[in-house]
Design a protein around this nucleic acid. Structure first.
Length: 509
RNA sequence: GGUGCUAUCGUCUAGGGGUCUAGGACAACGGCCUCUCACGCCGUAAACUCGGGUUCGAAUCCCGAUAGCACUACCA
């Protein structure tokens, strides 16, 4: 029988969740759902020096907002974790790690090392490519070179030590990666990695994540490519424990939009787009990082965009709902090469999803923005819905609705010089005087208005562009906006005439 | 330096020996629509890193070079 798929996303609470991390979480989630498996979230907080308060809540809130659902472990709904294989926060699992480290030492796969960080640093300075491994460990200060009594003595004296993995040199380590195929390493390139740190009495990532993955019955490890070089170590550790190794899939990295290298926080600041899902206030360095949510991006847009950054189904579909993504997703179709982060495209997705929303939904999102712009909203909800329907196709963000509809709420106080120069020409004033009279006498149905005005223009042989644009400038303040009779319909007769009269007074003839 | 990974339009990608005069999307540009600005629609331009092999035939398979990236901590 096939084992139930169980995958995990295991971030460190060292700051805001990077967009690359979001994609890793997404792929894990899609894979889990696709195979009817479970998605876990585990907090890897074994680096006490880099811990940032609030980061963990930030992570769970981000995933929750994006719709990446967690079945087991730490999540938005269960901050302390849910599920039978917890705890899901590594600092709560100290005793578990101690037990397994002990097991490794007893089986001869690991050893105590007493070399201080200063001694190691000196060694690295002295010997250019120094590596703590089979070729050097015999000359170091560890339980392999010391007598059992000496080791015991040091430990009971409270001397600081780390536990290192004893790498067997010159072994060929073959790993089958779902995305990359077979990858071969020679064990001699690995150093005797520290498994247990003396500094904070906690295991390192290598030991902790592996013990947890095993205990939490993880079947597939889907993570960033930066972990590929340490896979042989992990394979050797699984062997040392006598455990079956999960399947690996190493995802390509997210690269800077321009130039080279991994996408970093600074790129976002520099190029003006967020690299974090939510705004984050870092209490350690008091910095604020902007977030996609606050900038007006929709979760659907981010998910759709991220899914296609490094993965693609075989057909030419671009727009995917979450359900469609789950349906179509497969690790085999994840590309091998890194992807530059194209922030123009995520804007396009946002525009698309904005236009898929109903006017009512957009109204709910727009209303709070509107309230910050005008003291008293002069339009009814029905009218605002109309204004939204008229202009949403031009918007990428909900906030753009204001720039597109502002003139409905606030009459123009000044008139755009460029528009005036182009359209308010010789005769405009006189034409508007005549138009005002016609409008005053007309009923207010758009087709009637249109017909009446068109007849008048034809009869007088006026240039239509000049008439309509001069009129538009009087109502809007510049040459922009929806169709003119849509504007007059929304403004109403009284307001339209008032604006036209004001323009006749304010604009020089 | 060492080890590993990667290499198709500016960007994300399709392609997996002949159907490739290389497809789609974003961006760019042009046109249409039109009272304006947009949206939309239509179109244009734009790529197989290089060199060797294998083969009747290579973007596709192999080797090498080059380039990019990652890792090389008592960080994850």
């Amino acid at each position: 029988m096939k084992k139930t798929v169980r995958v995990r996303f295991a971030p460190s609470p060292t700051g805001a969740l990077h967009i690359g991390g979001v994609r890793t979480a997404l792929y894990n989630f899609l894979f889990a759902r696709k195979h009817g498996g479970k998605m876990l979230l585990r907090i890897e907080d074994t680096d006490s020096t880099r811990y940032v308060p609030g980061a963990e809540q930030y992570i769970t809130e981000s995933l929750h907002w994006l719709g990446i659902e967690i079945d087991e472990g730490i999540c938005f709904e269960a901050p302390e974790g849910k599920g039978p294989l917890g705890p899901y926060r590594q600092t709560l699992r100290r005793d578990i790690y101690r037990k397994y480290v002990k097991q490794l030492i007893n089986s001869g796969n690991a050893y105590y090392a007493f070399d201080t960080p200063e001694e190691l640093e000196a060694k690295r300075k002295e010997i250019p490519n120094f590596q703590y491994d089979a070729s050097t460990r015999d000359s170091m200060n560890n339980s392999l070179t010391l007598s059992a009594e000496a080791v015991q003595q040091k430990i009971s004296n409270g001397e600081k030590y780390v536990v290192r993995f004893k790498v067997i040199p010159n072994e060929e380590i073959r790993v089958q990666d779902i995305i990359r195929g077979e990858v071969v390493f020679n064990s001699s390139i690995m150093d005797d990695k520290v498994l247990y740190k003396s500094a904070d009495d906690l295991p390192t990532y290598h030991l902790a994540h592996l013990v947890d993955d095993h205990l939490m019955e993880i079947t597939h490890v889907i993570r960033g490519e930066e972990w590929l070089p340490s896979v042989p170590l992990h394979v050797m550790l699984y062997r040392a424990f006598g455990w079956e190794s999960p399947q690996f899939a190493h995802l390509p990295l997210l690269l800077k939009p321009e130039g080279n290298g991994k996408l970093s926080k600074r790129d976002g600041d520099r190029l003006g787009f967020p690299v974090f899902p939510l705004e984050f206030h870092n209490p350690i360095d008091n910095t604020v990082s902007s977030g996609y949510r606050e900038q007006g991006y929709f979760p659907e847009a981010i998910i759709n965009f991220l899914a296609l950054l490094g993965w693609h189904p075989s057909d030419e579909q671009e727009i995917f709902s979450k359900e469609e993504l789950i349906q179509a997703f497969s690790l085999e179709r994840v590309s091998k090469s890194g992807a530059k982060f194209d922030y123009e495209k995520i804007r396009w997705f946002n525009h698309h999803y904005l236009n898929e929303k109903s006017d009512e939904e957009l109204y709910q999102l727009f209303r709070p923005i509107l309230e910050t712009k005008v003291e008293k909203i002069s339009l009814t909800k029905e009218q605002i819905l109309q204004a939204i329907a008229l202009t949403k196709s031009r918007c990428t963000f909900v906030a753009d609705l204001w720039e597109q509809t502002d003139f409905f709420f606030v009459p123009p106080t000044e008139y755009d010089a460029k528009s005036l120069k182009k359209h308010w020409k010789e005769g405009s004033h006189q034409m508007m005087v005549e138009l005002l009279e016609i409008l005053q006498q007309s009923t207010w149905e758009s087709d009637v208005l249109n017909q009446t005005v068109m007849d008048w223009i034809a009869q007088k042989s006026y240039p239509m562009g000049q008439v309509m644009n001069s009129f538009r400038i009087a109502l809007v303040g510049s040459a922009r906006g929806p169709h003119i009779w849509e504007i007059t319909a929304l403004l109403g007769k009284e307001q339209t005439l008032a604006r036209l009269q004001k323009a006749l007074k304010d604009i020089a003839q």
